[in-house]
Write a protein that binds this DNA or RNA. Structure first.
Length: 378
DNA sequence: ACGTATGTGCGTCACGAAAC
DNA sequence: GTTTCGTGACGCACATACGT
């Protein structure tokens, strides 16, 4: 089967498979790769599709549905509570792990039996749907994910190390950077004035205002000093940082766009790093500064001059520029898409936990009613 | 210590849907 | 009809767990 045909074949099955995999995992754990369906494992797994409406929709639509239902549930729960602190229920996951679930007792018509009260359950882990509970919800969610993970992730360890050693270093936030309204750029890094030495011996100083000075010890002071000023005005493509490159030896100021994920600042050195290296360091905004002798790195696009583009070479450059722009946008879109997907999976996990609690309570109530209505004659 | 299996995240391509 | 956006799929690199 050709690649294209195979792709189509897989595509037709995968929307269902995604949800099926989430359903069929017996230990209640949903890994990203499974939900992502990014490998051949997906094609071999089978399961019953018990959430057909969600399975047919894209996960984004599913997330909206989930969030709507959650918001309804949360609002009902919130409006009906005039009494003391709500119950906290321990939800037992199929894997044996437990999470804390806040139960809001809602008894407009109390059950005839006393013990199991009908509850509308509010899960603290749904941080996405309740802003007021966001902080503790995020913590709970993270804790739960820690427990559910079979082994600590590389990024998590890095986060813990960063927070333990020096609280100044910003944590690598997996998903929160955008939600909290701080665009990932260098200005958000709490580095007052940092001096780095590159692998080529250059010194790079980052001032508080985001200005970068590059000095080349090999050359004399005047020629080696270059200034980079970074701004994030709306003019460049979204997610890109406009870098003004004012080399004093040059006769003018050049501008180029730097995609947010392409520039690497490391503690020890600033080096040319391929894109996957930047990826390995996490989602932290990173800056990649090429050595002066090298060309522009992949992803850095020279701003097109306002002049005409007629020669074949200029046309080719324009095509390349367009392609780079498209790739950059798609890169950012893919990141955002994955972030949403993770959010969606978290939401599903929480919903499963809550539904299990509800199911258990209903079963208990049913048993109790049975006992009351048909007492054994022994 | 080494090789292998598995999990995870990323960039890119392809393609359908929505926007223009 | 064209462009833009969102997302599934793929391949890759890296980290970690596990068996030898």
């Amino acid at each position: 089967m050709s690649k294209c045909g195979r792709k189509k074949y897989i595509r037709t099955n995968l929307r269902q498979m995604t949800m099926e995999t989430i359903e069929s995992h017996q230990d209640g754990r949903v890994t990203d790769s499974m939900a992502e369906g990014g490998s051949a494992h997906m094609q071999t797994q089978t399961g019953q599709n018990s959430i057909p409406t969600l399975a047919q929709a894209s996960y984004r639509r599913g997330l909206m549905i989930l969030q709507e239902s959650w918001e309804k549930k949360v609002s009902v729960a919130g409006s009906g509570t005039g009494r003391g602190s709500p119950d906290v229920t321990l939800v037992q996951l199929p894997s044996g792990q437990t999470i804390h679930v806040q139960g809001v007792i809602q008894t407009p018509q109390p059950s005839v039996i006393q013990s199991p009260q009908i509850q509308t359950v509010q899960v603290a882990t749904i941080a996405e749907t309740d802003e007021s509970a966001e902080s503790e919800g995020v913590i709970d969610s993270h804790k739960r994910r820690e427990i559910l993970s079979r082994r600590p992730s590389y990024r998590k360890i890095l986060n813990e190390l960063s927070s333990d050693v020096h609280g100044v270093v910003p944590k690598i936030e997996e998903e929160k950077s955008e939600e909290e309204g701080t665009p990932p750029n260098i200005a958000t890094m709490a580095v007052p004035t940092s001096i780095y030495q590159t692998s080529t011996g250059q010194y790079i100083a980052i001032a508080q205002g985001g200005a970068i000075q590059i000095s080349n010890p090999g050359s004399d002071g005047v020629q080696g000093l270059q200034a980079l000023t970074m701004t994030n005005s709306g003019a460049p493509p979204p997610g890109a940082t406009l870098v003004q490159y004012a080399a004093q030896s040059a006769d003018g100021t050049q501008q180029f766009f730097v995609p947010g994920s392409q520039v690497v600042v490391q503690d020890e050195e600033i080096e040319l790093a391929p894109s996957h290296m930047a990826a390995a360091t996490g989602d932290m905004p990173t800056y990649q500064i090429p050595a002066p002798t090298t060309g522009l790195p992949q992803g850095v696009v020279m701003a097109a001059s306002p002049g005409s583009l007629h020669s074949p070479q200029q046309l080719a450059e324009e095509a390349t520029r367009k392609r780079e722009l498209r790739l950059m946008k798609n890169r950012e879109a893919a990141k955002e898409c994955r972030r949403r997907k993770k959010e969606y999976v978290k939401c599903l996990e929480s919903r499963v936990a809550v539904l299990e609690v509800q199911n258990k309570k209903l079963i208990e109530e049913l048993e109790t009613l049975r006992d009351i209505c048909s007492p054994k004659a022994d």
